[in-house]
């Protein structure tokens, strides 16, 4: 490029792509286009744990500030939901086969599945809803879905308290099995973290996905034993289908919590092992899957 007619100073000629890369290499400048190696990524995510916590508490505060009744809804909502499900599946079209304490059985299904549904619905939008943050600052993007998962943990705690009240009121005895409840919830949260990471990337690729997620959740709500015992109805299916229905990662956490809290549901350690498997495999796969697009989050 030569000097312009109006005395524009000469622009330094562009380096070729190879020259630029060599110059960057000599001075140790990393390329922005690529994503960091997966190991480094996991490390940097761990390094951001305090930031994750800051974001998560901030989100919790922001959400509860908009409703006048605020935190009260986190208690009222599960109660209303349990009530309406009981009306339909307890009284109108009973699906109580194979259960003795149906109200507690149903309450566990509603609360635990509700936790999964809201985690995935909210978590899938954790990138697109925070696009301002993504475009203004550079940080490992997985921070956002992980923070959203944590936010959901905090939000579900009042519902768990409601659940405990329902369980006690309906006459379940206090047993040592209750101590397993935090373990079951921790495994469920890990599973959800993995799913949220997967969903967040999918929604970032195509926002149309946000329309499919409610459909998927509705289908899962009906097949995951929220309001009926899969075991009691398993005879209707091919044994393979029955097994799949029982150990799929949406049904399994519900079954595990029932084993903790209901006397009628004996502990099945094989299911706990399967839960642990999901709790390891899904977050690991989810993080890897999310990391694949690390450089692409925030693109308009």
């Amino acid at each position: 490029m030569t000097a312009g007619p109006e005395g524009l100073p000469q622009t330094p000629p562009a380096l070729s792509a190879e020259e630029a890369a060599a110059l960057a290499k000599r001075h140790g400048l990393p390329s922005l286009g690529g994503r960091p190696p997966f190991g480094d990524y996991v490390g940097s995510l761990w390094g951001q744990r305090s930031f994750i916590w800051t974001l998560s508490t901030a989100q919790t505060v922001a959400r509860n500030s908009s409703d006048r009744l605020g935190m009260l809804w986190t208690v009222l909502n599960p109660l209303l939901l349990i009530g309406s499900y009981y009306l339909v599946f307890g009284l109108l079209v009973p699906t109580t086969k194979g259960t003795t304490n149906f109200i507690a059985f149903l309450a566990i299904g509603v609360v635990i599945f509700g936790y999964m549904a809201s985690s995935i619905t909210r978590g899938s939008k954790s990138i697109v809803n925070n696009i301002g943050l993504v475009r203004a600052l550079r940080f490992p993007r997985a921070v956002l879905p992980v923070a959203e998962t944590l936010t959901q943990v905090v939000t579900v705690l009042p519902a768990i308290a409601v659940l405990m009240v329902v369980v006690i009121v309906t006459g379940e005895p206090v047993r040592w099995h209750w101590l397993l409840l935090p373990v079951a919830l921790a495994m469920q949260t890990a599973i959800l973290g993995g799913m949220v990471l997967i969903a967040a990337r999918l929604v970032n690729i195509s926002r149309d996905m946000t329309n499919l997620i409610p459909v998927a959740i509705r289908v899962l709500r009906y097949v995951s034993g929220v309001f009926f015992s899969i075991e009691a109805y398993a005879a209707r299916f091919d044994p393979f289908v029955g097994d799949v229905l029982m150990i799929q990662p949406f049904a399994l956490p519900i079954a595990l919590v029932r084993q903790c809290l209901l006397e009628e549901a004996p502990i099945q350690w094989i299911q706990w092992a399967a839960g642990l498997g999901w709790a390891v495999v899904l977050p690991a796969f989810g993080l890897w899957f999310f990391w694949r697009d690390e450089a692409k989050y925030g693109r308009a």
Partner: peptide, 12 residues
């Protein structure tokens, strides 16, 4: 913050 369509950016 915006991934390049073509070309490359190196940054210290």
């Amino acid at each position: 913050l915006l991934p390049p369509t073509n070309g490359e950016v190196f940054l210290a």
